[in-house]
């Protein structure tokens, strides 16, 4: 007679909790930028005319293109999430990849924009900039600080999206790990995989020197679709990406359109 032990599989996923944590984190990000927006408001009230004058020097065309790029990327990531929810892994993969490409486009544009400015001697601490009025100095300092911090967030967002891409790209599977102290429970027993009455496979008795047992159950990607936890991960990554987008929606008019 086989020594059979039953083990209860327990899933530790709380999707509502995970999403709640993400929203709280986004709140902190929003407040991080709020500090800069407060500074912007204070300085703009003091130097309204100089802010307007300095804003004429920014390239509205590049700014507009970047706005369109980010808006579209928010669409693609949203489509990606919906696709994954409908178990369409292939479409989701493409959409996430497309989002990353848009993010890259944004950064490349930003790079050319900043280089042009730096080429004209408008960068923090440059003599050319310091010879101007105080309002204009503060405007450009804020411009670099705020778009710089936003650029950093674009970079982080890209990283997160790429990480989720690789998670989605992997073949769906489930892993069961039995490690100390629970391994004691399995010693001297056999593992059996069964479906209904039918036994699929049986392994040898687990000996006393076994430290860890790991069972990987691979799913058929065509039938079983996706790993459920990836959906929430992509959704959270998408939320983060929307935040990056929405902050730009505020930065764009405040720096480019106030002429």
């Amino acid at each position: 007679m086989k020594n059979i032990r039953e083990i209860a599989l327990e899933e530790h996923h709380d999707f509502v909790g995970a999403k709640m944590g993400m929203w709280l984190f986004l709140l902190t990000e929003l407040i991080l930028f709020t500090g800069l927006f407060i500074l912007y408001a204070m300085y703009r009230v003091r130097h309204a005319a100089e802010f307007h004058a300095a804003a004429t020097e920014l390239d509205v065309v590049i700014g507009t293109i970047n706005t369109l790029v980010l808006l579209t990327s928010s669409l693609t990531v949203a489509v990606g999430i919906e696709a994954l929810k409908r178990r369409n892994r292939k479409l989701a993969k493409w959409m996430v990849l497309l989002t990353v490409l848009f993010a890259l486009t944004f950064l490349v544009n930003k790079y050319f924009e900043w280089s042009a400015k730096i080429h004209h001697g408008i960068f923090p601490g440059a003599d050319e900039l310091l010879s101007r009025s105080q309002g204009e100095i503060i405007y450009f300092n804020l411009y670099y600080a705020m778009t710089g911090l936003h650029g950093l967030h674009v970079l982080v967002g890209m990283g997160i999206l790429l990480w989720v891409y690789f998670l989605i790209a992997r073949k769906p599977s489930e892993k069961v790990v039995v490690a100390p102290p629970n391994i004691e429970y399995l010693k001297g027993a056999q593992l059996i995989a069964s479906k209904g009455e039918q036994e699929r496979w049986v392994i040898d008795e687990i000996k006393d020197d076994v430290v860890e047992v790991e069972v990987v159950i691979k799913k058929d990607p065509k039938k079983a679709g996706v790993d459920i936890p990836n959906i929430i991960k992509l959704e959270n990554a998408g939320l983060y990406w929307h935040l990056v987008d929405i902050i730009w929606i505020f930065l764009f008019p405040l720096f480019y359109l106030i002429t």
């Binding site: 407040i31 991080l32 709020t34 800069l36 923090p124 105080q134 503060i138 300092n141």
Partner: peptide
């Protein structure tokens, strides 16, 4: 987060000369 951004601004002001609080740059 509010102190986070304030402290970050001290760092960029020291390292990159992005004057936000420096009176000589209008801060």
């Amino acid at each position: 987060p509010m102190v986070g951004i304030t402290l970050l601004l001290i760092i960029v002001e020291r390292l990159l000369n992005i004057g936000i609080f420096d009176p000589t740059q209008g801060g």
